[in-house]
Design a protein around this nucleic acid. Sequence first.
RNA 1: GGUCCCAUCGUCUAGUGGUUAGGACGCAAGGUUCUCAUCCUUGUAACGGGGGUUCGACUCCCCCUGGGAUCACCA
Length: 469
Amino acid sequence: MIRTRFAPSPTGFLHVGGVRTALFAWLLARQAKGHFILRIEDTDRTRHVEESEQHIMECLKWLGLEWDDGPYRQSQRLDLYKEWGKKLVQAGRAFADPYSAQELEELRTGAVNAHQPFLYRDYRPKNPTSWDGSQPLRFKSEPKAYSWRDEVMGKLKSVPEAIDDFILIKSDGFPTYNFAHIIDDHLMKVSHVIRSQEFLPSVPKYLNLYEALAIERPKLATLPYVLAPDGQTKLSKRHGAKDILDYRREGYLPEALINFLATLGWHDGTNQEIFSIDELIEKFSLERVQRGGAKIDEKRLDWINGHYVRQKPIDELYELSKDFWPSSAKNQTVDYKKSVLTVVQERLKHCSELSALTNFFFEDLAIDLSLIDDNKQLSSLGRHKQTSLLEAAIEKLAQGDFKPKDLADKLNNLLSETGQPPAVLFSLIRIATTWAPASPGLAETLSLLGRDRTIERLQKSIAALNSGP
RNA sequence: GGUCCCAUCGUCUAGUGGUUAGGACGCAAGGUUCUCAUCCUUGUAACGGGGGUUCGACUCCCCCUGGGAUCACCA
């Protein structure tokens, strides 16, 4: 039975790097019809952020990464770690650390000054006092060379110098990550430990601990870093990382983010770029995970998101985009907004653009003559010609049912009657009825605006042209 | 500094000894009766360097360089 876990520490918001780790673990579990476990690693009381746990779960839920087991909290399992710590003491593989923080620091700086690597085991106490739970409990390592297989990285090896004594349980009674995750993975029957690359240098220590504990080692899969968009440093809260929920706030679709994350460091080997969740579950494999880090490319995310937005049935898209309408749309009917949405759907990359793309459907934008004067063809017409063309438009458009088909016909008639090319006539009408830098097709736009508003805006524009410079 | 990991277009990647080094994003140009976007077409651009192994290396080995991580009573 495949059992994977996501084990974040509740120290702040979740970002792309963390979520990708969760996604890969989730995909592996789903693919094998196994279990995906959520475990909160809250063993550092000083860095604990109260709302963080809720935040983590909200992110996972939004993305659809539902867990089958948990959430476990390590802070509620202290007795377990203590019990396993005692086993190690009895086996002679752990001892109470007698050094104070200051003493340790002195040993360390001494080694550094002597240009020697610091290894605790060189200073291991001869006759440690028995462990009563108030001192830190330290692992007594048995340094040796290891070679092992990582599900992503392949063959890995290490030298004995990579292994040292380390703290299992802190003096406050909480275990360290190094100890707790080993115990928990064992007790929770985790089959694949999937985690980010930063733990790689510690793996030899873990291998040594598995042996001392005489427990079976799960499969290890090391994921490369997700890199910040600009530099080449790993993504972190200090460097370029964005709260996952910010993506939701900006109108990104969960399936788009999943698709983006999955193909950031993984690829199925074909030319396929767009993967549904089900396809990912079917096709994902640790073998094909990249070994080098991958930078976040926001442009690519936008492209993927745009793809999903364009695919969305209009009713669904409407539900998703509810928060993104301009404030002037507040009192408009659902039907009208859906019509507007239909017309702008294909130019929407994410929902937060909705307001800027549609505001002129709900309010009169400020008249900005530079839209006309900066256009060579339009400005060369001169004010008189401009206004006479708009007047002709009013006359023509005043009749008819104002449906897009009817408007298209009328606009075409107008072309031949005025002898103007579309680049002139349509541009002029489009600007005079929207005063927006861009809009959907002219006939659709006018139809949605309706006869009254169209005529009114044309008249206002004529007036502005006549009184303007 | 010790240890460990990594290395193909700007970015994400395909490639597993013989390819015109492929795709996608981006960017540029053109087309689709106006703009913006979509869509289509075309273009742009890469194997870090040096040694080997081999008839033949992007592919295998070594060295260098570069990048990153880690050396906590943080995870």
